[in-house]
Every structure is written in C-alpha cells, then in structure tokens.
Nucleic acid binder design. Structure first.
Lengths: 193, 193
DNA sequence: AGTGTTTCTTGATTCAAATCAAGATTTATG
DNA sequence: CATAAATCTTGATTTGAATCAAGAAACACT
C-alpha cells in the first residue's frame, strides 16, 4: 500500500514508533474522489478526516459577496478536513473539493477517537503538528494582509513551484486573492525579468 | 490571585477539573511588563509562554519592506507566545510587545513540559484549543485576502469593539493592514451612516 | 484533423487605497 | 497651565488592481 506516506509524515513531524503503525493504519479506510468532486460543503457536518495519498484537494469558502477563496491545497502527504466540525458535530463553512482524481485514506469520528485515545504517539503528533500549523497560519494571516499580489505570487513560486504547474491559473488566482486577469499580468511582469 | 481567569479559560474550552488546578497553577510564575516593553523579538528563541491577566499584548512582525503588521492582540484571558520557537528552540520571526502595563503568568519550558506530561486535562485543553485556533486562523486567512478594508473594519467593530476604544488608531491600522489615513477615512464613512 | 470548450492574455476604463503634505486635535509633561 | 509630543484628520495626487470586453491559445473529444 501507499500508506507509508502517512508513516513518513508521522515520523517527519514526530518520532512515531514504526511498530505502532499497523494498529493505526487499521483504523483508516480508503476512498477515491473524481476530479472536481465535492467532498463536503458549507453547511455539512464533516464526518471524516482525510490524508491524501495521490492527487490534490482544495479547501475553500465562498465569501458573502460570492467570491471563491481558496485557503489551502492538500497535496500528497497532507491532511485535509475540518476539525472543528468533525469533532464538535457543528456545520462547517468551508468546502472541500478534489482538483484531480484523488486517493485518500481517512478516519471516521469513532476511529479518530480510538486513535487519539489508544495511540499516544498519534496524539502527540497532532499536538505538535497543530502547533506548527498555528504558527504557519499566523504568518499567513500577516502576509495575506501585508503582501502585494506580486509578492504573494513570488512567494508561491518560491515555496510551492509545483502547484503552478499542477493547477490551472484561475485556481491559483483564488488562492492569491486576485482576478485571473491580474494573475496573468503578474506572471508576465515576473517572468520577463 | 487573579489566576482564576486561567481556570475560567480552561473550563470554557475544556472540562478542566477544578481540583487539578492548584497543581497546574504552581507551575506558573508571575511577571509584569511596562507599556511598550518588548517581550521578545524576531531572532530570539522564545523561552516562555504567557497568559495575560491584565493589560494587552501585541504580536506582530516586520515585513521585508519594513511594514509593521499586527497579527494578534492578546487581552485578558488570552495566551501569547510562540509555540514553535518555544518548543523547538528555534528563533522566532515574530515580536511580542506590551501595549499597556501588563500582568501575566507564564510557564517556562521545563514547567510546560511537566504540565503537558503530568496533567492530561491541560494537554487535552491545548489539543482542543489548537483545533479551534486553526479553524479560526484559516478563516482569518481567507478573510484577510478577501475582504475590503471597510469590511475588515466593520467586522472588527462587531467582533472586538473594545479593542477600538482600548488601542490607538494606528495600532488598529497595522492590524487591518491599511495606513492610518485610510483607517481615518474608513471610520468617517462608517460612523456617519 | 476539426470543432467546441476551457483557459489565458491583452487593452481601456474605473475605482479605491497609498502616498505626500499640512493642519487640527488630543494627550503627556514640566 | 502651557508647551511639546503624539495622534488623528483632511485634501490632492499617484498608483495599482478590478472590471469590462474581446481575442488568442490550449485542450478535450469525436
């Protein structure tokens, strides 16, 4: 199975003991999503938490004035879901969509609970990972407010160049928070240099 | 002591057992910061994690082009620090500053470790709280990218009206990501209605 | 290959925030 | 209380992204 992507992730962020892994992976189920399939939508209560093995997912929301805003692309080896909704049975206001044919493994709520209570290394992984995510997101917020679209684009090129090849430009635009037209001009400006 | 603010917070977000609290609070130390005092700076390794009892702290960073960007105001009952740096001994790129004379209680790394390993309810509180923060921050990122300054301002008025009375306007401006001049005009537009 | 659809580019115009520049008001301090 | 310092407001101008409107290019499908 391709599930050693998960083990790799667990060991990259925390020293997860390999011998515990079979017990953990048993709690997961597998599923595939087709390109453009919506996995959950605003208003849904999220019942599963996904780990991407192959493909790419997009987490986004629709702003009051109808703008489509991407907040996160989950590629191979990344988690995607919505923990608040998942854990507290509350409706989410985010959407999750597959941008390519995508294979995931996932935990339902019961098995998440089992994993978190019976596999301490999994709990600790999440605690650590959440701290990491929080710091990243705080930076993101700052940068989102602060940076010009040109700067955001150059940062994306630097930090996640593969995304630019993998995704259509208008998806990148929703992530950068600019119109596709503006992104087109930004690219021109920044490649001609 | 005013430390039942902490107990309140722990119980608001998680069912923290009151009888465990004395053991936890013993791990904290107290400190005061003067108005405008810098608590840590970009480049520092953060050695403590603060909980605000009285006053207000500002977490911010300086962007490459020199702009001062506030990402978070920690008021009474809120945590402030920088977990990544704190836990992994890495230099932070954020700054923390007291905007008023401020009293905090704080954990050093050793006592954080003790609390996290010997007081499960504290660990669980953080796990839950982090999930909450992550969702909030993801929303923030989306909104920061998406909203117009007017909308951001109105959201601030709605969600944290006390901040507007408590802080000078140019601090609010660094938080909204606009110039003080623009904020002045936004206020005019939005109060005349 | 050929047609239709999706995605990307380019130009012209509009609109909002940044910037530059004083001035007014509030707050702190001797 | 007076003066200085800090903060906020207002106006004029510049700058850059959104929008509107076609067209061009890439891609998908028969």
């Amino acid at each position: 199975m391709d599930s050693d992507l998960l083990l790799k992730e667990l060991q990259a962020k925390h020293d997860f003991p390999t011998e515990e892994f079979p017990r953990l992976i048993d709690l997961f189920e597998e599923r595939s999503f087709k390109k453009n399939e919506i996995i959950f939508q605003s208003g849904d209560v999220v019942k599963e938490t996904y780990f991407v093995l192959k493909g790419i997912l997009r987490q986004y929301y629709i702003s009051p004035d109808g703008a489509d805003r991407t907040i996160y692309f989950a590629e191979e080896g990344a988690w995607a879901g919505e923990l608040m909704s998942f854990l507290h049975y509350t409706p989410t206001n985010l959407n999750l969509q597959a941008l390519e044919d995508t294979n995931v493994i996932f935990l339902n709520r019961k098995n998440w609970e089992v994993a978190m209570t019976t596999i301490p290394a999994f709990t600790m992984y999440h605690l650590k990972n959440h701290q990491r995510i929080i710091v990243k997101l705080k930076e993101e917020v700052g940068k989102a407010v602060n940076e010009t679209p040109d700067e955001k684009y150059r940062r994306l090129v630097k930090e996640k160049p593969h995304l630019l090849q993998r995704l259509p430009q208008y998806q990148i635009a929703t992530y950068l928070g600019v119109t596709p037209e503006t992104l087109s001009r930004i690219r021109k400006r920044n490649t001609m240099l």
